[in-house]
Every structure is written in C-alpha cells, then in structure tokens.
C-alpha cells in the first residue's frame, strides 16, 4: 500500500485554480519527482500536503491518515518534513538554534543527539558554523541547513522543493549526494525540481505537471527518453 496517496486534489488561491485535480502516490522508501514549468502548481501541492495551504477538494492520505483537515504542526508530528522553496531558514537565529527547532517535537534526547550527529556528518560546514546567524550563510549553506532542520524533525517522508535553486553545480552535487544518503537511511522523498535532468536521474518515478494537471507520468528512466519530456523540459 502506498505511503502517500493524493487523490483528485484541487487547490485554489481565491479565484486562481492552482491545482486542478491531481492524483499520485508514493511508496515507502521511494524517491519520486514532480517536474513542470514555473507556475505549474508544484509548490502548491507540497504546501497542501504539509498543511500550509488548505485544499478545495480531494484527499491526501499519509500512513492511513487524512491530512487535508489536519493543522500543519500536527502533520509534522505524523512524520512529514517539508523543505520549502527558498529554504526559509530563521535568518536571525544561529545555525544550532535552527537545527534544534527542527527537533521541537522530539522528546527523545538521545535520538535528537543522534540526528544532530547525522546532520553534521553530512554537512560538516554546518558544524563549523553553529554559532553563526543563519542569515549570514551562503545560499548553499542555507540549503544544507534547511535539509538539516528537516532531518532533525525525524520525518519518514521528506518533501523537497527545488533544493538546487540558485546554487553552483558543485554545491548541487554535494546536496544531492546527501539527499540520496537520506533516502538510503530509510526516508522516502518527494522531489520538486526545475532541473528535470537531475530530478529524473535520482528518482524512480516521475510526474509532469502542467497548469495544475498531471499530463505525463511513468518511470523516470522512460521519461528521460520520452520525446515530449525531452522537448519541453530537458532542453534537448
């Protein structure tokens, strides 16, 4: 049975219909990708899953619980970690404070320490900068911090919204290596990327979103050679 199951999801901002009947699912341990042009509705889908935006209709089931009526901070408790577009680190707080806020709901001190060690082993640069204000970090470091914070929430599913945005290729590589490590450690991943090549390379399945509707879906390997995808998203 799927870990996450989205069915006929519709989301509007006032009169703007951003998501117009989207269905997809994700299995335990999988990385799936959601690709599509700017404004297609990708971020809106993630924001609705994590409860920041309310759906108009449809359902989102995660580990057998309905999320559409659940408040955002309770969805985190169910095991969904969302790394938002633009990173959204707490700029005036230190790196360590940011990471500890990720563990807001963690009552197991030993587990918290263990997760902190995991974060520092993935991103040694964060450990070197624990007392630095997050707002003074470089873009790449902020993305690492945003991922680190999500690891601290101890989620079973991670929603990643354009983790490569605005970063140099070498940093993107470092970040994606660690995303794969997070997945190997047992966390399922729903990945949004503008960089469709990258998204299809790391995911097992993918969905293409256009104007709030899924138009193409399939195994990532197949989509990499699909003419429609190649023309529209892979710059071939």
């Amino acid at each position: 049975m799927a870990m996450l199951e989205v069915k006929d999801l519709q989301v509007s901002y006032g009169a703007i219909a951003a998501v117009r009947g989207v269905s997809f699912d994700l299995n335990q341990g999988e990385i799936i990708a959601l690709i599509g042009a700017n404004g297609a509705g990708k971020s809106t889908i993630l924001r609705t899953i994590s409860g920041l935006v309310k759906s108009k209709s449809g359902s989102i089931r995660f580990a057998d619980k309905e999320l559409t009526k659940t408040p955002a901070h309770k969805i985190v408790a169910l095991g969904i970690a969302h790394v938002p577009e633009g990173r959204h680190v707490f700029s005036g707080l230190t790196v360590l404070e940011n990471l500890k806020l990720g563990a807001t709901l963690q009552n197991d001190e030993a587990r918290k320490e263990e997760n902190l060690k995991r974060v520092f082993s993935m991103f040694p640069r964060l450990e070197e900068r624990i007392t630095q204000k997050a707002g003074t970090l470089s873009g790449g470091e902020q993305q690492m911090l945003a991922l680190g914070r999500a690891i601290m929430t101890d989620g079973k599913l991670m929603l990643l919204d354009e983790p490569s945005m605005g970063l140099a290729p070498i940093i993107v590589e470092e970040i994606f290596e660690n995303i794969l490590r997070i997945n190997k450690n047992g966390t399922s991943i729903l990945l949004i990327e503008q960089n469709a090549n990258l998204a299809l390379a790391v995911s097992s399945r993918a969905y293409v979103l256009e104007n709030g509707i899924i138009t193409i879906e399939g195994d990532s390997k197949e989509l990499l050679v699909d003419e429609r995808v190649k023309n529209a998203y892979l710059g071939a």
Binding site: S50, L52, A72, H73, A77, L101
Partner: peptide, 19 residues
Amino acid sequence: AQIRAVSFDKDASLLMGID
C-alpha cells in the same frame, strides 16, 4: 527560540511542528 522563530517566519515555524 520558538517565539523568535515565529517572528521570523510563521510558515517555516509550522513546518518545525511549532504550534
């Protein structure tokens, strides 16, 4: 820290599980 977090970014605070 939660008070400061909410003052900086309400949505990100929710994503940390802060009420």
